[in-house]
């Protein structure tokens, strides 16, 4: 299927926004001003954007601890996200959630998650709601290679098959869970095969190729609509930084990231074929400049924003109590 210029320009803008958001956080975290610990998504942008590009606001995604990219791809407000990561009063979650718990239900973004494997069962629940609405919407569970070893994920996959609900399980295989290689921890070394064994179509795609991810996602959506059950995608990718900021990455070959930045950078790869798709380099340069301005403004606004007041501590536990 031919992709429209608008879709492609928007996809590029989102990937670039994620990249610059994360690269800037990598710098800002060194200042010590950002609380807590942060897992950056740099390197994996084509997965979030390829998966979310065909989705609308009524479709759902459920994310992970490495969630900034998913949020941006699904349309969360970038300034609100930055404020949240800085722990500010008017952050997307009022400073109560932080980097690992950003959510915006109005955008169909049902939350990042601090618990590995916490998300997929929730995505199945949202898929039940999609099915009841009967409007062709879907629910996506993002997860890493590490998450596919969690029992909750097995249960979620089987439940989605049994209930025939439009859930799409997206496994981002970036080669590592924390400091352990996927080739060790995923016993079969075949995540797509594992998903397929539950009884759903599953394919492996090159996660640094936006076009490949996008096409796989369209096939997955078409399957949920025609057959009514779930589908899975394993996207091979890499993270350009450590597991969390400050990770010395002793488990990784010295020049691995440098090489991967050359061969697996989804933005470079997108630009390399952009003209084939009718996009001019100048258009992409203009987007780059706009994105940088947006990120500068987001950081400046976040730094200048007030913290929550102590009275906020006990609100929002319940609606009424």
């Amino acid at each position: 299927m031919k992709l429209t210029r608008d879709l492609l320009l928007d996809a590029y803008r989102r990937m670039k926004t994620i990249r610059e958001f994360e690269e800037r956080l990598h710098v800002e975290i060194q200042t010590g001003e950002i609380p807590g610990f942060t897992h950056l998504y740099s390197g994996q942008e084509a997965v979030a954007v390829g998966v979310c590009a065909p989705l609308g606001p009524l479709d759902y995604i459920v994310s992970t601890h490495r969630g900034h990219g998913h949020c941006i791809a699904k349309g969360c407000d970038v300034v609100g996200m930055m404020k949240e990561i800085y722990g500010r009063r008017d952050g997307l979650c009022k400073g109560k959630g932080g980097s690992m718990h950003i959510a915006d239900v109005t955008k169909g973004m049902l939350g990042a998650n601090g618990i590995v494997g916490g998300g997929p069962p929730i995505a199945v629940g949202a898929a039940i709601a999609c099915k009841r609405r009967g409007d062709g919407t879907v629910s996506v569970a993002f997860g890493g290679d590490g998450s596919c070893n969690q029992g909750t994920v097995f249960e979620a996959m089987n439940l989605a098959v049994v209930l025939k609900v439009p859930a799409i399980f997206v496994f981002e295989n970036n080669g590592y869970s924390e400091h352990t290689g996927a080739d060790y921890a995923v016993g079969s070394r075949d995540i797509a095969g594992r998903a397929a064994a539950f009884g759903m179509p599953a394919e492996r795609v090159d996660g640094s190729d936006f076009f490949a991810v996008h096409e796989a996602m369209q096939r997955a959506i078409a399957h949920t609509r025609s057959a009514g059950g779930p589908a899975a995608i394993e996207a091979t990718t890499t993270r350009f930084y450590g597991h969390f900021e400050g990770d010395p990455q002793l488990y990784r070959a010295k020049d691995e990231v440098r090489r991967q930045r050359e061969t697996m950078d989804c933005l470079k790869r997108f630009r390399a074929v952009a003209t084939d798709h009718g996009l001019a380099a100048g258009e992409l340069d203009a987007i780059d400049a706009e994105v940088l301005t947006l990120i500068d403004a987001a950081v400046a606004t976040a730094k200048a924003s007030p913290p929550p007041s102590d009275a906020e501590l006990t609100t929002d536990v319940y609606l009424s109590y």
Binding site: E178, H179, T180, A185, R252, K254
Partner: peptide, 14 residues
């Protein structure tokens, strides 16, 4: 321990 399946060969990476 960490490091199992890593590319550096460092077996106690964690």
């Amino acid at each position: 321990s960490g490091g199992a399946g890593g590319t550096s060969g460092e077996r106690e990476a964690s």
